[in-house]
Structure formats: structure tokens, C-alpha cells
């Protein structure tokens, strides 16, 4: 569909090599819009938390957590990450997950639940990918802490 664009991007990626291009120019404001603004993000986060609660692999980590507060924090975080007019006021990812000893398996399960939630909410694939791309680097601050 976009052969020229694809070729140019491929060429650019090849030129800068594997791994060196983590900051591709992205339309952050349009990501916020694609996610449906703050209202859409809030619904996606709620769906995400439903998925997590249903997921026996990881739901035990969330026992006793104030779901309402978590929902608001995550909504603000995703909103801010996607370029929206929000402020994530919570602690940094490292501090939040300290002492939980989360594994790669836990992290993968969490990502899977988010993808399934976005699919249920019919979030466009490009917006799903861009949001995942912004969340993926948090792996280093979340796993094994």
C-alpha cells in the first residue's frame, strides 16, 4: 500500500542499524487522538484491568490494590505517554515495582492482557503498536526489581 514509504523506512532503518533507531519521529498528538482521547484511554484501561483480574497468571499481584486509584493512575500515565494533556502523578516505574520480583513471564502476560483489551476496544492497530512501543522500554524498570 505504501511501497515507497516502506522502502524509505527500510532503507533508513538499515542505515542506522539494529537498535539505534528507537526514537523514530512519531505523531504523539495523533496517538492520543487515535486512542480516543482521555475518555477512550480510560475505557481501554478499565478493559485492561478486567483482563488482568481474569488472568490467573498475574492477578495475584493485584490482590488488595485500590482498583479505582490504579485505573486513574494508568489512565493518566497512558494519556501522558500518548501525548495527551495529562500528568502522571504516581511514583516512577522502578519504585512502584520494587520488591515484587516480577519475571519476564509476568511482564509478557501483562502486555498480552493490554493487547487483548485494546483489541476488544477496537483500538486501531497502528495506535496499539505505538502505545506498546512507548511502554516496552519500561520492561527494564519493572522486571526483576
Amino acid at each position: 500500500m505504501y511501497p515507497r514509504l516502506t522502502r524509505t523506512l527500510l532503507a533508513a532503518l538499515c542505515l542506522c542499524g539494529l537498535g539505534a533507531c528507537s526514537s523514530m519521529p512519531s505523531a504523539s498528538d495523533s496517538l492520543y487522538q487515535q486512542l480516543g482521547g482521555k475518555a477512550g484511554i480510560s475505557k481501554t484501561v478499565t478493559m485492561f484491568l478486567y483482563q488482568v483480574v481474569d488472568d490467573d497468571r498475574i492477578n495475584h499481584y493485584f490482590a488488595g490494590v485500590n482498583a479505582d486509584r490504579l485505573q486513574k493512575r494508568l489512565t493518566n500515565q497512558f494519556c501522558q505517554l500518548s501525548g495527551g494533556p495529562c500528568h502522571y502523578g504516581g511514583d516512577n516505574m522502578h519504585k512502584v515495582h520494587a520488591g515484587m520480583h516480577l519475571t519476564d513471564a509476568d511482564f509478557n502476560a501483562l502486555v498480552e492482557d493490554l493487547i487483548l483489551a485494546m483489541e476488544k476496544r477496537r483500538v486501531p492497530i497502528s495506535a496499539q503498536n505505538r502505545l506498546l512501543g512507548k511502554l516496552a522500554p519500561m520492561h527494564a524498570q519493572i522486571v526483576g526489581k
Partner: peptide
């Protein structure tokens, strides 16, 4: 071998490069 997934970089799609 090296592999890397680039999120949303080709018309919003994920690109997997391997060498």
C-alpha cells in the same frame, strides 16, 4: 544473530529486523 522489533514504524505496523 540479532533481532529487533520496531513498534509501529511501517504505516503503523511493527517491523522485525534480523541479521
Amino acid at each position: 544473530a540479532a533481532s529487533k522489533l520496531f513498534f509501529g514504524v511501517v504505516a503503523g505496523r511493527n517491523l522485525l529486523l534480523n541479521a
